[in-house]
Amino acid sequence: MCAAVYVLSTVTGYVLTSALLLKCPTLLHRRKRESFFSRHISHRGGAGENLENTMAAFQHAVDLGTDMLELDCHLTKDEQVVVSHDAHLRRSTGMNAYISDVTYAELPPYLCKLGVTFQRECYCEGGEDKRIPLLRDVFEAFPNTPVNIDIKVNNDTLIKKVSELVIKYDRENLTVWGNASNQIVKKCYKENPRIPVLFSFPRVLQLLGLFYTGLLPFIPLKEQFLEIPMPSIITKLKDPSRMTKSQRLLTWLADTLLMRKALFDHLTARGVQVYIWVLNDEEDFQRAFDLGATGVMTDFPTKLKDFIERNGIAKPQ
């Protein structure tokens, strides 16, 4: 009986302590310093309004007042850091080659019309700017705009060169980098721990495990950005009638586990920003902000800007 009472009191004490620290994490952890704060994030510069990852797209988003540009980086054969999503050039340019196999001078322009990945049956037709830019072009053009860099391949030289560019343009306090791959994120952090990193996919799974077991309030976190999809948008990207029952169940389960206000509130209280991607409908914007997400990543920066202004969604003071 005494042993049972002891176990019960111990468990109760742990649960209460965990609940307290979940609500008040700064009792145990120093809040991470936020050098910038992003509500409005333009995915690939706003792939639904301009050709993705072009200077025209980035300029349009910055002119609108976006808080952050999201982009992707690869390395050319002559070791130039270029801004492009795909490793292979077929989809974006029609050229049957990998970026890593051609020099920067040999890169063709983007096609006139590109599909918008996160909007079903949607295409963007570009203007005059179809050039694949260099990362340094973006840094030079927008010295005060935060940039979210997806390191697309596990390449030590790419990681080193991106870090060198960030340092050269004095952007360690205006940049976040990483990838879904834990290997890439570890290499980024090792190369330059002064540039904030995002949670890799394995670390997101670990984060959820810690959250649901009540251990998260006790564990330090090196990451400063949680960037996750809203699983429910899959029903907008695929025809729901063609989804199997297991696919629908998996989507519902992932959405239920990931989209948790208590988790987002705890992380933001610790100085970890939470970005939800890639949302292109107002109902999804609203849900993300209602759940406590710091910011929303979108292909349609004008639509998101109008939504934020119309609903008075301000940055916290």
Rank of each mutant, 00 (worst) to 15 (best):
A97E: 14
L51Q: 02
F36K: 08
K113T: 10
E49N: 09
V62C: 09
R90F: 12
H60C: 02
R31D: 04
S92Q: 09
H74E: 10
G45F: 02
C122N: 11
C73Q: 02
Y104V: 08
F37A: 10
L51G: 00
L107W: 06
G126D: 05
C24I: 00
I41T: 12
A87Q: 12
E121A: 14
H74I: 06
L69E: 04
Q59I: 00
G94P: 02
S35Q: 13
G46N: 06
M55E: 04
S18I: 10
V102L: 15
G65P: 13
M95Y: 06
V83Y: 00
M68A: 13
M55L: 15
M68L: 14
G45W: 01
S42Y: 04
G115L: 03
T17L: 15
K32F: 14
L21H: 08
P108I: 01
L51Y: 01
P108Y: 09
I99W: 08
A19F: 01
A47G: 00
L22D: 00
G65M: 12
G48C: 07
I132Y: 00
S38E: 11
T103I: 06
L71R: 04
Y104G: 04
V81W: 02
G13L: 09
G126M: 04
H85T: 03
R33T: 15
R91T: 09
V102Y: 03
E121G: 06
